[in-house]
Amino acid sequence: MMNFLHRLASPPHFYRISGRLLPWLGAAFALLLVAGLVGGLYLAPPDYQQGDSFRIMYIHVPSAWMSLFIYMVMAGAGLIVLVWRIKLAELVAVHSAPIGASFTFLALVTGSLWGKPMWGTWWVWDARLTSELILLFLYLGVIGLYNAIEDKRAAARAVAILALVGVVNIPIIHYSVVWWNTLHQGPTVTRFDKPAIATSMLIPLLIMALAFNLYYFIALLMRLRLALLEREAGARWVANLLAEEEA
């Protein structure tokens, strides 16, 4: 297992395997996205109180989940960077940040658009909304910090430390609606008893969550491949690759 992981982390292997994986991931993503959108926007029944407005959650909720998940991946990669010093983990941590920031931004914007008609306000400073905004700033901080340091390996270590310090925000976001009075409602799906959502509404939501997950992996793989080519531009495997492509 460790042997396999070490081989995967070597740039030429990673480049080859990811290249073969990408078309399949792309096809699965397209299928899931269409299924989730049709299920969520067309097949799912309107909500008993919100009518059709609740359908924005098919973008909002998966985006919010992804914003947390990607941060965890980034922090996990940061741990590997600091302890094991693996180059590929540096790239995973660095290149997860823009994708995570996009999902966080999407979650905040869709939530705001929903909040105006439902709550009666675009924004309130309650614990959930504020901690999610801090998450966006953490992502932006990671991006800014990486670009501010010239030596990219030192930059990756600095980013890893920032990502690991910020990981304390993740449980705060998740439990904010439980620990404090908030305007944002409590957890619907991720609670210990049965989810408080009808099955016909839940299935498209889970499909969308899966589709968003695949999107993250696709976007990350493509970024990593490009970053590897740039970083190893002088290496022999890149030269061989170019020769292969030309032949």
Partner: peptide, 18 residues
Amino acid sequence: DEVLAKHDENYMPPEVAG
């Protein structure tokens, strides 16, 4: 001077709610 609605965490079709 401001009233906001707090949505609950339940989502269901109108039939079920009835």
